[in-house]
């Protein structure tokens, strides 16, 4: 059981690492948010699961942290992306379409 838990911990930690690597490598804010939030959510969930396997008496509290993260993480990234878009943060030149900007300009 300990071994399986430790492997899950390692898997989760590698996802955290990849998320941060994405944060460094991606060209603009929106892609950074994508790389950052997705990988860290799964990474943390895996770490929580691994910890629950190693220390079963903590599972309830770990579950609480997991549920909480699952709801707040995407929300904070959405709010951030929206804020970045409203304050007109530079987009990468690779961006092909931006419907949101077109619609916002039409309204104003």
């Amino acid at each position: 059981m300990d071994i399986i838990g430790a492997i899950l911990l390692l898997g989760g930690a590698s996802f955290l690492f990849l998320g941060s690597l994405g944060l460094i490598r991606m060209p603009d804010v929106y892609n950074r948010i994508q790389a950052g939030t997705k990988a860290t959510t799964l990474g943390t969930l895996l770490v929580l699961l691994g910890t629950a396997l190693i220390q079963p008496q903590w599972s309830l509290k770990l579950l609480l942290i997991g549920v909480f993260l699952l709801f707040t993480n995407p929300l904070s990234s959405q709010v951030l992306a929206n804020a970045a878009h409203r304050s007109k943060v530079r987009k990468s030149e690779l961006t092909s379409i931006d419907d949101l900007e077109a619609d916002r300009e039409q309204q104003s």
Partner: peptide, 12 residues
């Protein structure tokens, strides 16, 4: 993220 040329084509 791991592939060197970073194959992305973002859009909204």
């Amino acid at each position: 993220v791991l592939s060197p040329p970073l194959p992305i084509s973002p859009a909204i």
